[in-house]
């Protein structure tokens, strides 16, 4: 290895495990889910409920296997939920109830 410290799993610049992976250069249309998560993140940023760094911190806290399994915006919504719980903006009881009601 060319470094002294183990990296966090989001820090993948130059990491050998990905060197043989081809880039999928095809366009992928965003889904409604993707657009809504993206918009929600922007609103939370504008209203100072969640900064970009807080989002990143929570994305980077996603366990490695989940990080690579989840889609881009699935990571985001998970990170947003994590941040809102950590901050107390939403309580676990509220989120559990809302999940049970199907939103």
């Amino acid at each position: 290895m060319d470094q002294d410290h183990p990296r966090q799993h989001h820090d993948i610049g130059g990491v050998p495990a990905f060197m043989c992976r081809e880039v999928d250069t095809e366009p992928h249309a965003l889904s409604d889910f993707d657009r809504e998560v993206d918009a929600l993140r922007q609103i939370l940023g504008q209203k100072r409920v969640m900064s970009v760094d807080e989002l990143r911190r929570c994305i980077e806290a996603i366990p490695e296997a989940d990080y690579h399994r989840l889609s881009y915006y699935e990571r985001w919504i998970r990170a947003i939920a994590d941040h809102l719980l950590r901050q107390g903006t939403v309580t676990p009881d509220e989120l559990r109830a809302a999940l049970e009601q199907g939103g």
Binding site: F33, E36, V37, L40, D66, L70, S71, Y73, E74, I77, R78, I80, A81, D82, L84, L85, V90, P92, L95, R96, A98, L99, Q101, G102, G103
Partner: peptide
């Protein structure tokens, strides 16, 4: 709770 499927999490948070 954050392990819930993404679409369900979004719906719950939107609410």
């Amino acid at each position: 709770l954050v392990d819930a499927e993404g679409g369900r999490l979004l719906a719950a948070l939107r609410h």
